[in-house]
Amino acid sequence: MADDSPLTLAPHDTVITPDGIALGSWSRGEGPTVLLIGGLGMPSMVWEICGLAPALVDAGFRVIRYNARGLAPSMAPPAPYSMDDMAVDAVAVLDHYGIDHAILVGYSMGCYTTQMLLRSHPGRFSAAVLFAGLQPTPVGEIVGEMELGLIDKYGEVPREVLVFEQLMTTLHPSLLQEPAAVGGWRDVLAHGDGGWADPEGFRGQLTASQQWITSHEPRPEHLAAISVPTLVLAFEFDLFFPPAQCQATASLIPGAKFVQIDGAGHGGLFTGPGDSAERITAFCTAHRDGADGYHAG
């Protein structure tokens, strides 16, 4: 079983899902389990880089993170994928480590997966964090439709389009007005390979996201059925998941707590500022007694 340190490319564990897809996962720390579920195209190493995974380990948790299907070193089966697929994959990761109960932390599209897990296995999770991903707006649907249309027409989303889109949605307004910051982020985004195991991975995750949004999720009846303590975080300048809409939706979850993180766009997990890692760690600590699944097999 792999046990890696922050910012190192440690060997990954291989999880095999019920439909035979191999996923790369990592586990470290000891204590109650927190499962970290990333967003669309988000390598799980980001949880280390942003400081959340180390903070949770230091607080006495076992942290499990994994790359969703489509992202290397995980396999990329042919598209389309569904949010049901993504949830089944997450359960397979927990089963691989013998975890019975856990706290869930989902970011962006990872919030969709988190909600699916709460529906399909309501007794298995003791608390949930829905981070920058509770209530999607038409902006997300428009971007997803554009990207899928470009893939259908050209076989890919041109790099220049992806870079511009990511700059405009990831950075907050003050960074977008700083030429040096824009240039630096442009270079980072332009030289990355996206981390996809295959182009089908990008298409697959996009179709899962679009299916969720066009199904008018999250629905009020599903939100009302969430029975675990829930923390909802939203960034002040998030174009995909604006805080006012996330706060209104959070009010439909019984007892949910909402917090706005000021001064950041959707990419606030990478760019800061804010105290999201501290808030999430404190929330998990307050609800650690229910996440007793660290007796791994």
Results as ranks from 00 to 15, higher is better:
A92C: 01
V93C: 01
K153L: 09
Q205T: 09
A244C: 01
T271R: 04
G20F: 06
T169W: 00
A291H: 04
I37L: 10
H96A: 13
E165M: 06
S5I: 10
A244Q: 11
T114H: 00
A296S: 11
P18Y: 13
Y294G: 14
V139L: 09
P243F: 05
T169R: 13
M1R: 10
C284R: 05
S120G: 04
T170Q: 14
K257I: 06
M116H: 11
E236V: 02
R288N: 09
Q205G: 13
A225H: 11
D198G: 09
G106K: 06
D193A: 14
D238G: 09
P18N: 14
M116Q: 13
G110A: 07
V46Q: 14
A282S: 09
G38R: 10
G297C: 06
L176F: 00
L118A: 05
F164Y: 07
R28S: 11
E147I: 08
T271S: 14
L150W: 01
F283C: 10
S276F: 04
P136M: 12
L117V: 13
W196S: 06
D89E: 03
I21L: 02
E147F: 12
A2K: 12
S27Y: 01
H216A: 14
D58E: 15
R203D: 10
N67G: 05
A277R: 11
I280T: 11
D187Y: 00
T114L: 01
A256W: 01
G31Q: 10
A181N: 03
P273I: 02
D152I: 13
M75C: 02
S215T: 13
S5T: 15
G106T: 10
T230D: 08
P54L: 05
L171I: 08
R28A: 10
L171N: 04
G201W: 07
Y294E: 09
R186L: 02
P273Y: 07
H101N: 08
A102E: 02
P218W: 04
T214P: 00
A286W: 00
S25V: 05
A181H: 05
S27K: 09
M83E: 08
Y112H: 09
A282V: 04
A250E: 02
D100Q: 11
G268I: 10
V93E: 02
D84N: 11
Q177R: 13
T214H: 08
E217H: 14
L148V: 13
S227G: 12
G98K: 01
H216V: 11
A102I: 03
T14H: 07
M116I: 05
L252R: 15
Y154A: 15
